[in-house]
Write a protein that binds this DNA or RNA. Structure first.
Lengths: 197, 197
DNA sequence: TGGCCTTGTCATCAGGCGTTGACAAGCGTC
DNA sequence: GACGCTTGTCAACGCCTGATGACAAGGCCA
């Protein structure tokens, strides 16, 4: 069956970009292993072979996607006293966990992609390296002062764990709206306590 | 090449048990997708077809492994005032994260298996259900009182996130022994604060 | 209009997966 | 000793994956 849609204009840059965005969405919603080249290609309306030509291997595509995401530093920009509140809001309410295109979720996307593919042995090296370079190290530096490394581990642990808990519980759907608010507030307070020491 | 080891004595129960233990170890070290029936079979020294006969499908094997693990309630037995300290020790020092056979790590194993296979769409249903039935719900009930559900989400989030951070950083190998101690203490305090309210 | 580089498609490959049904070997029982 | 049930092996199936090289078609330039 041939779909009667307009053919994609021949534009390598645009196509490459479209592939990158489709892949980003896929890697945000599924693990490295579960994302297929053919799936991404279908999303774009292109043959899977083209991805190999433009990006090389699947791992290279994954790397390109991670590079195209916002850096972990973006999570820290803003008033330091609001860090807990900002991050808690992002995790509890952010549509980030659903990978929509809202500017709010944008900042979490890189981290969420990493969390999705945790556990995949094929992606482990890349995930470990990126998590450290892009998140742990900047966070440690940003926290600064005594025991910065230790506090960074704790803060990132809470953030990652809550992001995962969100996935495990379908976006905290079992909680009432009021409970979600208290979850946000408690998490904000705990997180702020961890980075303030 | 035929290995000249003694043939496995014909004992269905023992073989079934050996398969279950090998699978438990595998699922503890790799994700659902990365664990192959042939790998498990090789560990036991048996043909992969036998696993299908004894356990049915791969998903059934995964379920059997989860059933064979200690329940989340075991994490809560003991003095409530020590909960944070116990769990933090388990996460920071426990060889649990390496899935060895020490009695200490035993209690975390079920949770670690779930965390390993988070992100696998094939195992998602089982993981979600088990995480809720075995961990979140008992923890919520155990915490009790006001906002128990909210506090359980936070506590389990911190535990899960730190367990994942442990994997991501090769068992906190970048930290000195002294820093690990402080990490344990800070985590214990934070965790205790979350469940006490 | 004819050549030619670029862009995209197609068929195909080798390899891995979980699963299946037919077959071999052990072992107790009559 | 022969039967028959249990336990385990083997070869194969169908399916899916990422990757490759040959080929078709668009579009610019002379």
């Amino acid at each position: 069956m041939v779909l009667c849609d307009v053919p994609r204009p021949r534009n390598a840059n645009a196509t490459r970009q479209a592939i990158l965005e489709a892949a980003r969405e896929r890697f945000c919603a599924e693990s490295y292993d579960d994302v297929g080249m053919r799936d991404v290609a279908r999303d774009v309306g292109v043959d899977a072979a083209l991805i190999s030509r433009y990006f090389g291997s699947k791992e290279d595509l994954f790397l390109s996607v991670l590079d195209s995401c916002k850096n972990g530093r973006d999570l820290m920009e803003g008033d330091r006293a609001d860090f807990g509140q900002r991050l808690a809001t992002e995790v509890v309410y952010g549509e980030a966990a659903r990978c929509e295109a809202d500017p709010t979720g944008e900042k979490m996307r890189g981290l969420l992609i990493l969390l999705r593919s945790i556990g995949s042995t094929k992606a482990m090296d890349v995930v470990q390296r990126t998590a450290n370079n892009r998140f742990f190290d900047p966070l440690t530096q940003w926290i600064g002062g005594e025991d910065a490394a230790v506090r960074a581990r704790l803060a990132s642990g809470l953030i990652m764990g809550m992001a995962i808990g969100r996935e495990l519980s379908d976006g905290f759907s079992a909680l009432t709206e009021e409970q979600r608010g208290r979850l946000r507030d408690r998490m904000a307070k705990a997180l702020q306590g961890l980075i303030d020491g």
